[in-house]
Nucleic acid binder design. Structure first.
Length: 344
DNA sequence: ATAATTTGACCAGA
DNA sequence: TCTGGTCAAATTAT
């Protein structure tokens, strides 16, 4: 297993290096076309995130895969992503029931996790971010020690009907009430896209509306619309809507620019080169940013399928065949997945 | 009537 | 034992 980890490490680093190179090239092109301040800022964030990710990976490689906690950098919108996983082989010689528990537990631990910080328009958004393209059901709220505001827990609405185990946690920033830290855990395996082939007009008042961008321009339009959504009065309760905006890489407005930079973090020494752009619910099912679906083929049903798809998506490079040694990772063969994305 | 949210209880891990 | 995460009954909304 260790060799697999090492190999993955090299692949991840390689991918990150490539990504950084591409970002630098993009930066170069931007510089030749008098980019806006926001574009420059975004570019620098992207590059710094790459560097951060690489430094984390390098340090981790030296430290024998010591888990590194996600540490979202300060910024307007930051995103980090990590994967809990382990290359350790463990004793699975327990009872069937124990093994089921073990698998369930590990499955949850193996789920990719990433955090996004979303700044909402203070004029509208103190009630929380809006639609991210998926339907969520709130299942809990908890006061967190040291945090000023409670943390809300959401799970996919279709957990029961489609066995989708994606969850997210939403917490308002202590410092800035307009900033929400959203932690996604797991990717959607539900097929919500079938319900949103034609994105309905986003109703700011509806918490459970969803839209799935079918093309980039539509994605941006929806995103922009959502980011300026007003979901009603605020502070009547310390709750927030189940929907929120998908934070974007793009510049969205002149006053409330929202950025997302991605830094890859590694949960437990496997790989962490996730791009929220590709894993975020609003885009994960569009395949717009993703490589061709055939990249997904051959990973029939495993957690690593998520990892692989995310990984392969990270570079956004034409480099296609990211054929991970699935069998060398600890997988859950029951994890639903199909070739067209994260859905079945 | 059905679905979503709220909230206290419970549980597992540190 | 404390804390974060989840469950599930009660409540509220549609």
């Amino acid at each position: 297993m260790e060799s697999a980890c090492t190999w993955e490490y090299e692949m991840v680093i390689n991918e990150l290096v490539q990504g950084m190179e591409k970002a630098k090239q993009l930066h170069f092109h931007l510089c030749s076309t008098s980019p806006s301040r926001a574009q420059n800022m975004l570019m620098q964030r992207i590059l710094s995130s790459y560097e951060k990710a690489l430094s984390i990976l390098n340090s981790k490689g030296a430290a024998e895969h010591t888990p590194a906690p996600p540490t979202p950098a300060s910024g307007i919108v930051e995103s980090s992503i990590s994967v809990d996983g382990s290359c350790r082989s463990e004793d699975l010689s327990n009872s069937f029931r124990d093994q089921q528990d073990y698998n369930a537990s590990k499955k949850r631990k193996m789920q990719p996790t990433w955090t996004e910080q979303v700044k909402v328009n203070p004029e509208n958004g103190l009630e929380g971010p809006t639609d991210d393209g998926y339907s969520w059901r709130k299942y809990g709220q908890k006061d967190i020690l040291g945090a000023r505001y409670p943390r809300s827990y959401y799970r996919c609405t279709y957990r029961l009907v489609q066995d989708c185990w994606a969850t997210k946690q939403v917490q308002r920033s202590d410092d800035d009430r307009t900033v929400f830290e959203i932690t996604y855990k797991g990717v959607h395996t539900c097929n919500q896209s079938t319900n949103a082939v034609v994105p309905p007009p986003v109703s700011p008042e509806k918490q459970e509306t969803r839209h799935i961008p079918q093309q980039p321009s539509q994605a941006l339009l929806n995103l922009k619309a959502n980011l300026r959504v007003n979901t009603g009065s605020l502070d009547s309760k310390e709750t927030m809507p189940a929907q929120f905006s998908f934070p974007s890489t793009y510049e969205l407005g002149d006053t409330e620019n929202q950025y997302i930079s991605f830094s890859a973090l590694v949960g437990d020494g496997n790989l962490g080169a996730y791009s929220p752009l590709f894993l975020s619910p609003a885009t994960s099912e569009t395949n717009y940013f993703s490589p061709a679906p055939h990249h997904m083929a051959g990973f029939g049903g495993s957690d690593v399928a998520d990892i692989v798809s995310a990984h392969a998506s990270t570079t956004n490079s034409p480099m296609g065949s990211m054929d991970f040694p699935v069998d060398q990772l600890e997988l859950d063969p029951n994890f639903p997945f199909n070739a067209s994305g994260f859905f079945r």
